[in-house]
Design a protein around this nucleic acid. Structure first.
Length: 633
DNA sequence: GTCGCCCGCGCC
DNA sequence: AAAAGGCGCGGGCGAC
C-alpha cells in the first residue's frame, strides 16, 4: 500500500512528513524533510517513482498541484484534506458525536479550510495559475483579492489528517467504511484531474468557431454593436410589433410590446412564447437563440477563454452540493451544441468522446436493488426497456416519466406517468420517495458512498414550526407546505444525482490512471473535458483504440467498486449480462460528432429533428460495448 | 460609476 | 410534452 506523505507549509517553508507505516500511523515518530520550493517538483517525481508510489496528503490540491503540473510532474494519488473535510464533517455515516468533537461549529480553524483555492482563475482567465499560486504561497505576491489565495495558509495539515483519520476509524461498519474511503479517494482524484483539465485544456479551433459565428451572426462587429443578423431580426421584430424603438434585449419593454400586440404571455420565456400563434414568435425565437450565441459564446468569449487553440476553464470539484462539479469561467459545463464543431483534435490526434448512457436511472436501480429496472436497462436503451416491459407506452413517455420521478414532478404528463412507474418499479420509486419524505420533514439524506445533504436552513425549520403551531394562518400553512415539498424535491434528487456523481468520479479516476500508463512517440493521451456523465479524451490517433478499452474498463470497474454485490444485469428476455452503465463511445475529429443517443432517438419521430445534425458522420467511428468487454478486470 | 438582483437559457 | 432537480453566465435595470 502506498505510504502517506504529508506536505506541510510553515512560514513559507515546505516540509515532507513521510508516515512510517500504513495510513493512520501516528506522525510523531516521523522526521520531517525540509524541501526548498524550487526543488519540490524533483522531489515529488522521485517519490512518485517509488515501487508502491505514495499518496500525497495536503491541504488543497489547488494549492499544490498546479505548480507541479506546470513543472511537468503529475502526482498519481492524493488526499485533498479540504475537500474530504467538507464531506466528512457533514456525513451522517460518521457518528454525529465524533463529527461534533472533531469539527466543532465554533472551531476558529473553520474559515481557514472553507476557502476555495480555485477562485483566482476567474480573475485572470488565461494566466497559468501555477506560477501565481507559487508566488502567493511565498508571500511575494498578494495576488488577486479572492480570499484564500491572498491569505497565507494557516491550515494545520497534521491535525486535520489526524481528525479525519479518527473520523474514518469511527465508521465501524466495514461496508460503510469502505464506501466512505472510496468517496474520499474519488473526490481527491477528481481534484487532481480538475487541475490537469485546466492545464491541458480542450482543443478548440478558433478558425472553425469564427466560421460558425460569421455564418450565423454575420461578420464580427465593432465592440458594442449588434451583429448584422441580429440587427436585421431586431428590425423585423420592431416592424411586426409596430414598436420602432423596441430593444428586444430588454425583457420588460419586450413583454409590454408583446402584450400590447395581444399575446397572452406573462414573461418573454421561450416555452411561453411557443404557445402563441403570432408572426413575431418565430422571428423572436430566432433572435433569442442567436443573441444567446453572440453573448455567451461569441467573439468576446473566444478572446477571453480560448488561447492557442485551447479552451481553458476552472473546474470546481463539489462545486454543487450533490458532489457534481461546477465550473468557473467560460461556461465550460454548458458548452452549447452549436459550437461543438469547433472542438477539434490536433493533427494526428483524435477525440474519444464517451457518454455514460442514462446514468441516473441506472444508478437509482442499482442503489435500490430494483432488479426489474436493472433488467429494463440491460438491453441498452433503458427508456425503450420501460416500453418493452409494458410500464409505459412510448419511449418519450418513459423519458419524461423517469425524469419526473427523479425530479419530483407532480403535474402534467410527466407527473401523470410517475404512478405507472411506481407500480412497475416499486423499489426504485420507493427509494426516491423515501428521500423526498425525509427532506419534507427536515431530515438529511445521504448518497450511496456517504455524502450527506445540507441540513435545511434555520429559516426553513422555523417556517415549518410556525405553520404547524396554533393560530397559524392558512396562507402561512400553505407556504410552509410548499417549501417543504420544494426541499423534498431537492433531497429526492440529491441521492440520485449525488450517487451518479460518485460513479462518474470513480470512473474518471480509473480512466485517469489508465491514461497515465499510455503514451506514444507523439505524445500521451489526456483528459480534455468532463461533463457530469461524459468524458472527452484527446489522444494520439494510434492510441485511440487503447483509450476506448480504458474508458470501458474503467466504467465496469466503477460499477464494481460502488456496487460489488450486484451481478451485471441481464435483459428480462434472457441473453448476455450487460454492464450496469453502458457507454456510448465515439472516436472522432470533432466534438460535434459525439453520438447523443437520446437526441438521435428523439429525432426519429419528434420535432427535435434539427439535432439530427449531430448524428455520427462518416469520419466518426461508433464503438459498441460488446458483452465480452464487460469482463474487464 | 459599481453592485446585486432578476430573468432567461445553455448544459447535465 | 411540460415547466420538476442541479449549475454558470450575460444583459438589463434599479439601488446606491
Amino acid at each position: 500500500m502506498a505510504r502517506d506523505v504529508l506536505l506541510l507549509e510553515r512560514d513559507g517553508a515546505l516540509r515532507l512528513l513521510t508516515l512510517p507505516g500504513a495510513a493512520g500511523t501516528e506522525v510523531e515518530t516521523a522526521q520531517p524533510r525540509v524541501v526548498a520550493r524550487a526543488d519540490l517538483p524533483g522531489v515529488v517525481a522521485e517519490l512518485e517513482a517509488a515501487p508502491d508510489g505514495v499518496r500525497w496528503v495536503w491541504d488543497s490540491t489547488f494549492r499544490h498541484h498546479p505548480p507541479l503540473v506546470a513543472a511537468g510532474v503529475r502526482v498519481s494519488r492524493c488526499w485533498d484534506l479540504r475537500l474530504t473535510r467538507a464531506i466528512l464533517r457533514g456525513s451522517t455515516v460518521v457518528p454525529a458525536d465524533v463529527r461534533a468533537r472533531e469539527w466543532p461549529e465554533t472551531d476558529p480553524a473553520w474559515d481557514e479550510w472553507d476557502g476555495d483555492l480555485g477562485s483566482a482563475a476567474a480573475i485572470s482567465p488565461l494566466e497559468d495559475r501555477g506560477a501565481t499560486l507559487f508566488d502567493t504561497a511565498e508571500g511575494t505576491d498578494p495576488g488577486p483579492a479572492s480570499g484564500d489565495v491572498a491569505r497565507p495558509p494557516r491550515r494545520d495539515v497534521v491535525a486535520e489528517h489526524a481528525r479525519q483519520t479518527r473520523a474514518l476509524a469511527a465508521v465501524t461498519d466495514p461496508e460503510r467504511h469502505h464506501r466512505l474511503r472510496l468517496l474520499l479517494a474519488a473526490e481527491s482524484s477528481g481534484a487532481l484531474a480538475a487541475v490537469e483539465l485546466r492545464h491541458d485544456g480542450l482543443p478548440f479551433a478558433r478558425a472553425e468557431h469564427e466560421a460558425t459565428l460569421t455564418r450565423l451572426l454575420g461578420p464580427r462587429p465593432r465592440a458594442g454593436v449588434r451583429p448584422a443578423t441580429l440587427e436585421r431580426l431586431a428590425g423585423e421584430i420592431r416592424a411586426i410589433l409596430d414598436a420602432p424603438r423596441l430593444n428586444p434585449d430588454s425583457q420588460p419593454h419586450l413583454l409590454r410590446e408583446l402584450r400590447r400586440n395581444g399575446l397572452d404571455v406573462s414573461s418573454t420565456a421561450k416555452w411561453e412564447l411557443q404557445g402563441n400563434d403570432h408572426p413575431v414568435v418565430a422571428v423572436l425565437l430566432e433572435y433569442k437563440g442567436l443573441a444567446r450565441l453572440a453573448s455567451a459564446n461569441g467573439w468576446h468569449w473566444m478572446d477571453t477563454w480560448v488561447r492557442e487553440d485551447r479552451f481553458r476553464s476552472d473546474y470546481v470539484p463539489s462545486g454543487v452540493v450533490t458532489g457534481r462539479w461546477s465550473s468557473r469561467g467560460g461556461g465550460a459545463l454548458s458548452l452549447p451544441n452549436v459550437i461543438r464543431s469547433a472542438v477539434v483534435a490536433d493533427p494526428g490526434w483524435s477525440l474519444v468522446i464517451v457518454d455514460a448512457a442514462q446514468l441516473e436511472p441506472r444508478i437509482l436501480a442499482a442503489m435500490a436493488g430494483d432488479s426489474a429496472l436493472l433488467a429494463a436497462g440491460a438491453r441498452g436503451d433503458l427508456y425503450q426497456g420501460l416500453v418493452d416491459a409494458g410500464a409505459v407506452d412510448t419511449r418519450a413517455h418513459a423519458k419524461v416519466g423517469m425524469l419526473g420521478a427523479l425530479y419530483g414532478s407532480t403535474s402534467g404528463t410527466s407527473g401523470m406517468l410517475v404512478p405507472r412507474l411506481a407500480r412497475a418499479y416499486p423499489r426504485a420509486l420507493g427509494l426516491v420517495d423515501g428521500a423526498a419524505r425525509t427532506g419534507e420533514s427536515g431530515g438529511v439524506v445521504t448518497t450511496w458512498l456517504g455524502r450527506s445533504s445540507p441540513p435545511a436552513s434555520a429559516a426553513w425549520r422555523e417556517a415549518q414550526g410556525a405553520a404547524s403551531g396554533v393560530g397559524a394562518g392558512a396562507a402561512e400553512e400553505s407556504r410552509a407546505r410548499s417549501r417543504a415539498r420544494e426541499w423534498g424535491r431537492f433531497t429526492r434528487n440529491f441521492v440520485v444525482q449525488g450517487t451518479a456523481a460518485e460513479w462518474a468520479l470513480s470512473w474518471m479516476a480509473g480512466v485517469r490512471q489508465s491514461l497515465r500508463r499510455l503514451s506514444a512517440d507523439d505524445g500521451a493521451p489526456h483528459l480534455a473535458f468532463f461533463l457530469h456523465d461524459e468524458l472527452v479524451v484527446h489522444t494520439p490517433d494510434a492510441l485511440a483504440p487503447q483509450v476506448v478499452v480504458a474508458v470501458e474498463r474503467a466504467a465496469v470497474q466503477a460499477s464494481a467498486l460502488l456496487f460489488p454485490h450486484l451481478r451485471p444485469p441481464r435483459p428480462a428476455d434472457g441473453g448476455e449480462p450487460r454492464p450496469l452503465v453502458p457507454l456510448d463511445v465515439v472516436v472522432a475529429r470533432t466534438y460535434a460528432e459525439s453520438a447523443d443517443a437520446d437526441a438521435e432517438a428523439d429525432a426519429d419521430g419528434g420535432p427535435d429533428g434539427e439535432v439530427g445534425a449531430l448524428v455520427v458522420e462518416a469520419a466518426g467511428t461508433v464503438v459498441g460495448l460488446e458483452p465480452s468487454d464487460a469482463a474487464g478486470t
